[in-house]
């Protein structure tokens, strides 16, 4: 008995199985972390490196060129304009999506036969490829053969021939309509789930206390769904910050550079004009800005949760 026990003693002999068990938590996470470093750490380091060199279509100069590219960033008004466009899209689309989504969620909150079918249909735009969504709206917005102008014509009582993707007065509405169409259902779905999880005992208690609906809504329902709302806003805010596909499909940043977002601008610099080092500087700037925004947003949300 004793000799058998000593023979099997675990501490003595090496065994692959025991090694795997002991280091299981590292062995399972290592491959994933390695791959994520490829898209996480590598771009950071590499763009930083490239941004201090001078590589463009004309020359490949890998010597250290100091802060030249970063100085250029500040002189390049097109960069700051594209950043401004991005912020305009975000500032308009986000509240509209939130408001519409919330109204829709309230409509579907109560019992409604066939709710599942409505939800399934409504979620389709959100699940579609953004580039396909852009393509769809390209077809819809066509000035002569698209149905949008036709419908507007019925309402106006006279033929409407708006050049949605070309006319400077209409490109912003066009992109925003497509964006709001695709992502309002996202807000709707998340807020509907959030609203369904609100403890009805709280609202009923307030009703019995005689509180009017708007007061219950502001004082009980909104605070109750705020964590969910904050997450939805964060996800959508970050999405809008990198807005690319719909713009690419509808206007490609035009007319001129009127609708150029930061992602479109970086794409043009890096892959149309081959300003490699300068694009590196843009990318690094975006990473820094985004890190600051995310950290600030997370902090802000944590404060709310307290």
């Amino acid at each position: 008995m004793d000799t058998l026990g000593a023979h099997r003693s675990p501490a003595k002999a090496f065994s692959a199985g025991r090694f795997a068990d002991k280091n299981f938590k590292y062995l399972t996470i290592a491959p994933a972390v390695f791959l994520i470093l490829l898209i996480g750490l590598f771009p950071l380091v590499y763009t930083l490196m490239v941004s201090f060199q001078n590589i463009n279509m004309m020359e490949v100069d890998t010597s250290f060129s100091g802060l030249m590219n970063y100085e250029m960033l500040f002189e390049e008004s097109r960069l700051w304009l594209s950043l401004g466009h991005t912020l305009i899209f975000t500032a308009i689309a986000l509240p509209i999506e939130l408001g519409l989504g919330l109204l829709m969620a309230l409509l579907f909150l109560e019992r409604l036969p066939g709710k599942q079918i409505f939800v399934a249909l409504l979620v389709l735009p959100t699940m579609m490829s953004p580039i396909v969504a852009g393509a769809v709206w390209r077809l819809l917005f066509d000035n002569r053969y698209g149905p949008i102008n036709q419908i507007l014509g019925w309402i106006a009582g006279e033929p409407v021939t708006i050049l949605w993707t070309i006319n400077p007065d209409f490109v912003y509405p066009a992109i925003l309509i497509a964006e709001v169409w695709q992502w309002t259902p996202f807000m709707f779905l998340i807020l509907l789930a959030g609203l369904s999880n609100v403890d009805s005992a709280q609202t009923e208690a307030a009703e019995i206390d005689g509180a009017p609906y708007w007061l219950i809504f502001y004082k009980i329902i909104i605070p109750a769904i705020w964590p969910v709302m904050a997450i939805a806003l964060l996800i959508r805010g970050l999405d809008l910050f990198r807005l690319f596909d719909v713009v690419y499909a509808l206007t490609q940043g035009g007319p001129g550079t009127m609708t150029e977002t930061i992602s479109v601008y970086a794409y043009v610099q890096g892959f149309k004009q081959f300003e490699t080092s300068f694009t590196g500087a843009i990318a690094f700037l975006v990473i820094i800005m985004l890190t600051v925004i995310v950290i600030y947003a997370l902090k802000k949300m944590e404060l709310v949760e307290k």
Binding site: F42, T47, I287
Partner: peptide, 23 residues
Amino acid sequence: LGIWIISQRMLPPIVIVFPIFLL
């Protein structure tokens, strides 16, 4: 580690794809 991992999802694709393209 968990926060770091999910934060990698937040980066704009253009920022990731640019150096990946060069690689």
